[in-house]
């Protein structure tokens, strides 16, 4: 039991608790805040794995932009506590078993997969430098990169069109 493992478990616990809280909370704003907790925990995990740039991006973009957007929308729409309606019988009865089944399936696959066993236990904290990432991004992945910029452009246009008031 060395330090990284302990840190891992702590962060993992925080992430799972945050996720559970997201499910159990009734007011959407509380769910949003729980999600932020999850994201911070995940950022910590990324740091643990040596992906410092990704951790930073996670906090800045995910936590700082996307979640803030969520909170703005919640406040804009004046979301209240959830109602207790229950029209979908299927979701009520089949939901949990299915979710458990999917999770279990994936977990079983992971546990039994021989490919994972052949992976060497990670070398100690090889920090991935930003320089390496950017080199990759602008060399091998330049095409998807340009496409994503195009995608963001489309998203901006879409958001503007949607948010216009009807004239």
């Amino acid at each position: 039991m060395n330090a990284p493992v302990i840190i891992f478990f702590v962060l993992a616990a925080i992430a799972v608790l945050g996720a559970v809280s997201l499910i159990l909370q009734r007011h959407p704003i509380h769910s949003a805040l729980s999600l932020i907790v999850v994201m911070v925990a995940l950022a910590g995990l990324y740091l643990l794995m040596g992906a410092e740039f990704v951790a930073a991006v996670q906090i800045i973009v995910y936590g700082g932009a996307i979640m803030v957007l969520f909170i703005f929308v919640i406040m804009l729409l004046n979301a209240g506590e959830e109602e207790r309606t229950d029209f979908s019988k299927l979701a009520t009865y089949a939901g949990v078993p299915l979710a458990v089944a999917v999770t279990g399936l994936i977990a079983a696959a992971i546990v039994n997969s021989t490919a994972a066993a052949s992976l060497p236990p990670a070398a100690p904290a090889t920090l991935t430098s930003t320089r390496t990432l950017s080199t990759l991004l602008f060399k091998e992945f330049v095409y998807p990169f340009e496409l994503t910029s195009f995608l963001i452009l489309v998203a901006i246009l879409g958001a503007i069109v949607l948010a216009q008031r009807e004239n």
Binding site: S88, A94, L98
Partner: peptide
């Protein structure tokens, strides 16, 4: 059924 949550469950299945 027109019920979105049911559709979600079908996607899950």
């Amino acid at each position: 059924s027109g019920n979105t949550r049911s559709y979600a469950v079908w996607v899950l299945i």
